[in-house]
Amino acid sequence: MSLTTGLMFLGTSVVCSVSVGALLKAGRARGLDARQAIFMNYVVASTLCFLLLKPDLAKLLSPEQPVGIFLALGVLLPTIFLALAKSVQLAGIVRTDAAQRLSLIIPLLSAFVIFGEQLTERKMLGVALASTALLCLLWKPSKGGSGKGGAWLWPLVVLLGYGVIDVLFKQMAKAGAAFSGGLLSAFVLAGVLMLLYLAASKTRWGLGHLLTGILLGALNFANIYTYIRAHQSLPGNPALVFSVMNMGVIVLGTLVGAMAFREPLSKLNLLGVLLALGAIFVMVPR
């Protein structure tokens, strides 16, 4: 596939990812139980995966398929979501958001260490710009996060979790035609685990939370599907996919936060937006 196709998949994934975050943020202000919405999200994502991708489940049983990766994703997706909620509770939103975005470090390193991408001067410049952009975009005045014991433990779990999930999605993309079956198995397992968690928590179900989850599931499915397709379209450029995805989400998320949710945007944050766009420009092959 062409570079243009890969970038189109990436652009779609970025928009859907930011839409997921905006939906959860808007819902939280209206009393949304995100746990129920996330559970329904996996139900909808599983349904869409089955109906639209028509996975051949028999291929999952073949020896060459990375079943362990599919199962790991199914466990990590809901687990890291719960860790994210715990991190927000104990460490605050600023530290948690920083940890989630800084997880870019893990897939970037994996692009050169695990996936064998050649480290050129141009890519080194792109990585440097991306790292500087992250620091500028995430710099916010502290409002006194909690001093409890989990103030740094849980953000660290979030950082490691999201970084590993990114790498696993790249590995899933290498499964070829069987990736749709792997994606379905990951969604189903995530939904089952989320349901068990809600049952253990004796959750009082609400129709509004589940209806929000339907829209969330459609956006999340589109986000993950197009992200994997971007990796498949650009198999030799994992660092490009990782960087453009994360930088794109941060830039668009920052702008949406400022315009839709009136989040303050400093001059340093604006510099971060420009540096992130510069990083994307530098890393796109000519």
Rank of each mutant, 00 (worst) to 15 (best):
T79N: 07
G161K: 02
F242Q: 08
G217N: 00
A111F: 04
P107Y: 00
G208M: 13
L138E: 00
L234D: 06
M40T: 01
L60F: 04
A178R: 07
I106F: 07
P155N: 10
F70L: 07
L183N: 11
D33E: 15
L153M: 13
G278A: 05
A34V: 15
A190R: 01
N223E: 10
N237R: 02
A29W: 10
S46P: 06
L211V: 14
A177W: 02
K140M: 14
V241W: 09
A190I: 08
F169V: 00
P63W: 02
G11K: 08
R122T: 14
G6I: 01
A200S: 10
Q100H: 14
A34R: 11
G182P: 13
H231L: 07
S17I: 03
A178V: 10
A26L: 15
T79W: 03
F112H: 04
G31Y: 11
A151L: 08
G147Y: 08
I280R: 10
A130Y: 01
A37S: 15
Q36T: 03
L207F: 05
S131K: 03
K143V: 14
P78R: 06
L207D: 00
I228Q: 00
P78M: 07
L77F: 15
I224T: 08
G150N: 12
I69F: 08
I165D: 05
L195R: 13
L71D: 08
A218R: 07
M245A: 13
L255T: 12
S46V: 03
D97K: 09
Y197W: 14
M1Y: 13
L216F: 09
V251G: 03
G27K: 07
R28K: 15
L153W: 15
G217V: 00
Q232T: 05
A222C: 10
F115Y: 13
S185I: 06
T254V: 05
I228C: 03
E121D: 13
I106M: 02
R101H: 15
R286K: 15
A85C: 09
Y42Q: 05
S2W: 01
I224H: 07
F112A: 09
R95K: 13
V167T: 08
G161S: 09
K25I: 05
G163R: 00
V249W: 02
L138Q: 10
P107V: 01
M259A: 09
N223F: 09
F179G: 06
V43E: 00
L32W: 10
A151H: 05
A91N: 06
V273M: 06
A239D: 11
E121A: 14
M247Q: 12
P55V: 05
I228L: 13
V127M: 00
W154S: 10
L61N: 08
V188S: 03
G147M: 04
G163E: 00
A91S: 09
A85T: 04
A230T: 07
K54E: 09
M194E: 12
T5L: 14
R30M: 13
G6K: 02
V20E: 09
W205A: 00
P55W: 02
G147Q: 11
I165H: 09
L138W: 04
M1H: 07
K123V: 12
K54N: 11
G257D: 14
L57I: 15
K267C: 02
L274H: 02
Y197L: 04
P155F: 06
L73P: 01
P66F: 14
